[in-house]
Design a binder for these strands. Sequence first.
DNA 1: TCACAAATGAAAATGATTATCATTTCCATC
DNA 2: GATGGAAATGATAATCATTTTCATTTGTGA
Lengths: 121, 121
Amino acid sequence: MSRSNPRVLSTLERAGGFASAQEVYKLMQREGEKIGLTTVYRSLQSLVNDKIVDLLRREDGEAIYRLCGEHHHHHLVCKNCGDTVEIEGGAIEKWAKSMAEDHGFRDVGHTAEIFGICSKC
Amino acid sequence: MSRSNPRVLSTLERAGGFASAQEVYKLMQREGEKIGLTTVYRSLQSLVNDKIVDLLRREDGEAIYRLCGEHHHHHLVCKNCGDTVEIEGGAIEKWAKSMAEDHGFRDVGHTAEIFGICSKC
DNA sequence: TCACAAATGAAAATGATTATCATTTCCATC
DNA sequence: GATGGAAATGATAATCATTTTCATTTGTGA
């Protein structure tokens, strides 16, 4: 059993609490941290085990790690230039909760992304 | 532009309307169909484009294809057994539309999934 | 210092998916 | 029936995230 390298968690926080393993790795490299990709993966898995971060999936299937407990937000993404805006999802939270209750689900989480073409494109 | 090979759709139906590309391929092989993996992928993509099947993700990120009705809906998925319920997302439609408008986005689409543990698990 | 367990990371393996590209099948037209 | 071009097909190679392997390094208690 390996414990999480604290620099991984700190980098995930700095990334806005929302990133893939590859992104965390690249970010750490850019910041001059000496760390291997393997350790990044191991640390993130360990954080998921300890329920410190959530494991979600992007549309293409890539794993993304999200800090738990953090008041999470959603994204508005431009399909053309990739520009991303963080948005609030109060309506979604309520919707997810009530839908889950209606069907007897518990331990509920959700994902929601909006995509389109931004005004610059 | 390639159209879907009808045998792929028919196999997906026979598989219970819920399978990965690899599974559809293996199933067709077992049944003696002469078809290439490439064609299976292409056909499934085309079916997704035509909104004849939905593209979801397993826990491990593998793409699974699922027959669905033609109305736009969302999913409530059990993280444990994979059981899926189709749900309405009226609130989401409005939320996505207004958020996109607020930020000047056009040609807007969205994804939203709720996941949790179902009552049987 | 010594020994040993845990952590690390480079490199190879895995497995799904996508891209390439030559070949085959369709179909309309002659 | 022959012909020509467009679409479909599929074997193979490439891609990319993720996992495994395994040798090396680091930390720690005796």
